[in-house]
């Protein structure tokens, strides 16, 4: 019977219906919302030419902003690698009171709007805030300095590391650890030579995700940064400043540079990861 139905349609038999409308809408919507607009940025920046972009990004203020965005994101991602791995480790291996609650809170930076995170962190780290007032007598200033940028970027990047490392750590076979132990390895040797290589690719992925998110971060950083030109001004903020000055070319040049550098870094990290997996 079914063959008759298909034959009457005169098409190749396809068991599940709806490919054409579903795929058609998907591609249409994707093109309208994402692809055509993004292509516009590259179209616009190609109008500037490589030299045009170079001239924009080598002005001291823009260069300082790019350096801060990428540098602070790198340091924040490193901090997250260390502490995120410890957090992932204690959630996989140990039990402690309040574990389920803490587990839910790890995703807070995903759920909390960046502007809220920004003003909350500023309130905490400003000289009269809870943490700021403790650090102030010690001569450490966090709010309105580059340290503040790093703190905000650490906040938003944390869940990327934990959520990437956690499932991989859970899969590490305990048999291997036992084998290492029976062969006379100290616990530290087992951890560094058996467990660490197994989770390294996940750590690298988490680092990349955390870094990529921090580079483009705007909302949580601008409040705590203080935004002093050439000192604590991040690249996304400079894009907005250029837009407000109707310097569309300058804004596009910075945006295109950020996109290209992020893309190259992620590509490098992906290659590194592929290499680590093969080894």
């Amino acid at each position: 019977m079914s063959t008759a139905v298909f034959a009457s349609r005169g098409k190749t038999p396809r068991a599940i219906p709806g490919l054409a409308p579903a795929l058609g809408f998907t591609i249409l919507y994707l093109s309208l919302i994402v692809l055509i607009p993004l292509a516009g940025v590259f179209f616009k920046s190609s109008g500037l030419g490589v030299f045009g972009i170079w001239n924009v990004i080598t002005t001291p203020r823009v260069f300082a902003a790019l350096k801060l965005s990428f540098g602070a994101a790198f340091i924040a991602a490193l901090i997250n690698v260390v502490f995120g791995s410890i957090v992932a480790w204690i959630f996989v291996r140990y039990t402690f009171p309040g574990k389920r609650l803490f587990d839910a809170f790890i995703d807070l930076p995903f759920a909390l709007p960046t502007a809220v995170a920004g003003i909350a962190l500023t309130a905490l780290y400003s000289p009269n805030g809870w943490i700021g007032s403790i650090l102030e007598p010690l001569g450490i200033k966090i709010a309105y300095t580059q340290l503040g940028v790093i703190v905000a970027m650490t906040f938003i990047g944390l869940p990327f590391i934990v959520r990437t490392v956690e499932p991989v750590l859970r899969e590490v076979e305990r048999d291997l650890e036992e084998a290492a132990a029976t062969l006379g390895a100290w616990r530290w040797q087992t951890v560094s030579r058996v467990i660490a290589p197994a989770v390294l690719p996940a750590v690298v992925t988490g680092f990349a995700l955390s870094f990529a998110r921090a580079v483009g971060e705007y909302g949580s950083v601008i409040f705590i940064a203080g935004n002093f030109p050439s000192v604590s001004e991040i690249a996304p903020l400079l894009i907005i400043i250029k837009l407000e000055e109707f310097d569309y070319r300058g804004a596009t040049a910075i945006a295109a540079t950020m996109l290209v550098i992020s893309f190259l870094l992620l590509l490098t990290i992906n290659l590194l990861q592929a290499w680590a997996r093969r080894r």
Binding site: P37, L38, G40, V41, K44, T114, A212, V215, G216, E217, Y218, G219, P236, L237, I239, I240, L243, Y248, A251, T252, A255, M258, L259, S262, L266
Partner: peptide, 14 residues
Amino acid sequence: SVSPVVSGLVYVLI
């Protein structure tokens, strides 16, 4: 993977 500011910029350019 696109910075939110760049996503906004995209629409300003259009």
